[in-house]
């Protein structure tokens, strides 16, 4: 659509432009989608990952930046991507069309928690219930930590997630949720503890302006998935490169940059819990 194109142009003007290290001329490339929802615009880090994968894979890798998890899932289903790093919720909803490749390990667990953060200027807000009638920033409609989990928690408060906040919106990236909360655009927001952890380390100035008031129990970490019709050989090859990543120095260094321990080939059942949460939060009416 026209406005989407315009939005992409605007997005390019506002954020640092992403320059693809693409090898479009080559016929056989691995197309990997990494949406900015989770990782934000860490261009240098993605460049390094791109270089690493290019060296290890038997064919050149091409990175894509789908604007949301939904776009990434759509692109996979339409064979426009081979692999993508998407939210756990996005995977749990579309398991029929996708293959689980690996799940990242954060703090030695393939799981992470959802955190609710509020602006540091709102000391009176101590729990989620205090945010009632306020403004709230979600991250992506297909994010568990940034959307599904906090909504489930609102349900647990016996409140309607659609009316609990005076105004809520999707910031479309976890770091933007943190930004929106830190500048006061939203009173509160939902992010993954993984994101919060990297923010505290890398951008303490933003992290200082917000604080965590609630942490969920751990849910499956956003996985790296393949389109279902992708050749097994390619899936295996990509998986083995990622699983071996923590065995070489460059890989370990890179993982360290991402604040991850490595990747595991997890059981698909890891995401059952997320799927169940969806059933509870978004029942068929």
């Amino acid at each position: 659509m026209n406005f989407k194109t315009r939005r992409r142009v605007l997005g390019a003007l506002l954020a640092a432009p992403w320059i693809f290290k693409a090898h479009a001329a080559e016929s056989n490339v691995i197309r990997i989608g990494i949406s900015p929802v989770f990782l934000g615009d860490q261009v240098l880090l993605l460049d390094a990952l791109h270089d690493y994968l290019n060296q290890r894979l038997q064919m050149p890798a091409q990175f894509f930046r789908p604007g949301s998890y939904a776009v990434a899932v759509n692109m996979l289903m339409q064979n426009q991507l081979d692999f993508a790093w998407i939210g756990g919720y996005a995977y749990a909803l579309n398991r029929r069309h996708l293959n689980l490749v690996v799940t990242p390990q954060y703090q030695n667990e393939p799981r992470c928690r959802s955190c609710i953060i509020v602006g540091a200027h709102l000391p009176q807000i101590k729990r989620l219930a205090d945010l009632k009638g306020g403004t709230f920033a979600y991250d992506d409609p297909l994010s568990d930590s940034g959307f599904l989990i906090p909504r489930a928690e609102i349900l647990d408060l016996k409140e309607n997630p659609d009316t609990f906040f005076r105004r809520s919106f999707f910031a479309r990236a976890q770091h933007k949720v943190a930004d929106a909360v830190s500048v006061g655009l939203a009173d509160g927001g939902a992010v993954a503890d993984y994101l919060w952890g990297t923010l505290v380390k890398k951008q303490p100035k933003i992290a200082e302006k917000a604080r965590v008031i609630w942490r969920s129990k751990p849910y499956a970490f956003p996985p790296i998935v393949a389109r279902r019709n992708l050749a097994d050989r390619q899936v295996q090859m990509f998986r083995s490169v990622l699983l071996r990543m923590n065995t070489d120095v460059a890989g370990r260094h890179l993982l360290g940059q991402f604040d991850l321990n490595g990747f595991v080939h997890a059981n698909d059942g890891l995401y059952d819990e997320t799927a169940q949460l969806h059933q509870r939060v978004m029942p068929i009416k």
Partner: peptide
């Protein structure tokens, strides 16, 4: 003019940035 996409997509953060 610039805010139109943000309005259409209810993208508050984009509107704030613009």
């Amino acid at each position: 003019v610039n805010l139109l996409p943000a309005y259409l997509e209810d993208d508050v953060w984009l509107a704030y940035e613009i």
